[in-house]
């Protein structure tokens, strides 16, 4: 085993872990806003899939990756609004309505792909942006500073999210309505409005996450996300509902994925076992969750619709 983990392999695994973490990170950060406000959106994966298709299709037609990202965001925004309407205004059972959104996204993204594209055509991917000076540092440069802009932006979104949640009145309202909406309501905080906003942020970020995924891979196919949206939901728990905790979870998941990919490429894992190995990230995530989640307290009003006077 000794010669397998050369410096070059390590650098490749870390760099790839960071890249693979980004879609999860974005979707999970979005879901954090929703969940901190008391709304569980199980439809994240469906939104990611439609966002991924929209992003793919926009890049296919325009060649511009940023328009692709915008397309993913717009689709996510609308699905976020729809999810808000279902969960907050119609007060649907959140454990079930999200599954509907997921199935809609899964089916619709494939249908649109078959109708509008048909055969997979590769598209432009995000250009790599080397950060001056830093990217020249041996080892650290290729690991951390030779990524595309979206990677840097996604990691920048972590402190921004933390700041919004902890230091702004909007963030305070989110925490309040997720914990004790009755109290927020008696002080004139709009419970529905805050939840709509938080849930829509969640949808938008999920749409962007999907777009990032498709454009990074330069391809779209049926069920492209392979359940990443569900992992993103799990990461919210894993990260104890904090952006920083979610980052560690996303990186852990990205690292395991990167490692498995690398080991496959190096043919250390036999071909006939590679499907089994592909399950490793999910299994390790579930185990990690089982250990960590016991100590984590979810927002008290999570999944509970609010009605004044009840």
């Amino acid at each position: 085993m000794g010669e397998v983990f050369t410096a070059a392999v390590l650098v490749a695994v870390v760099a790839s872990a960071i890249r693979l973490a980004v879609p999860l990170l974005l979707a999970s950060l979005g879901e954090t806003f929703g969940q901190r406000s008391g709304v569980l959106n199980l439809g994240v994966d469906g939104i990611m899939l439609l966002g991924a298709f929209a992003g793919y299709y926009a890049v296919l037609k325009t060649g511009n990756v940023w328009l692709g990202l915008l397309a993913g965001a717009i689709v996510g925004l609308f699905l976020g609004l729809a999810s808000s309407f279902i969960a907050v205004t119609l007060k649907a059972e959140q454990g079930i309505s999200g599954i509907g959104v997921y199935l809609f996204g899964l089916g619709m993204s494939d249908l649109l792909f078959q109708k509008l594209v048909g055969t997979p055509i590769p598209i432009n991917t995000f250009p790599k942006v080397d950060i001056p000076i830093l990217s020249d540092i041996p080892y650290l440069g290729p690991m951390f500073f030779q990524h595309s802009t979206v990677v840097y932006l996604a990691f920048a979104a972590i402190p921004v999210s933390t700041f919004i949640i902890n230091r702004t009145t909007f963030g305070m309202n989110i925490r309040a309505v997720g914990e004790y909406p009755e109290a927020a309501d008696t002080l004139g905080v709009s419970v529905a409005g805050t939840r709509w906003a938080a849930e829509t942020i969640g949808g938008t970020l999920a749409g962007i996450a999907g777009g990032v995924l498709a454009i990074s891979l330069g391809i779209f196919q049926q069920n492209l996300t392979n359940g990443a949206g569900f992992i993103a939901i799990a990461l919210v728990y894993f990260g104890a509902f904090t952006p920083l905790g979610i980052m560690w979870g996303a990186l852990l998941f990205g690292a395991i994925n990167a490692l498995v990919l690398e080991l496959k490429t190096l043919e250390i894992i036999p071909r006939d076992l590679s499907n089994l190995a592909a399950m490793a990230p999910a299994i390790i995530t579930i185990l990690a969750l089982a250990v960590v989640a016991r100590r984590i307290r979810a927002p008290a009003a999570l999944t509970k619709p609010f009605t004044r006077g009840h």
């Binding site: 309202n173 309040a176 004790y180 109290a183 927020a184 002080l187 905080v189």
Partner: peptide, 23 residues
């Protein structure tokens, strides 16, 4: 009608206009 996970000051200021705008 207090949010247990917020501080006293946060609970008091909930729903009020902040002198620092969005912060």
């Amino acid at each position: 009608m207090l949010v247990p996970t917020l501080t006293v000051a946060e609970n008091v200021s909930l729903g009020l206009k902040s002198s620092r705008g969005a912060l």
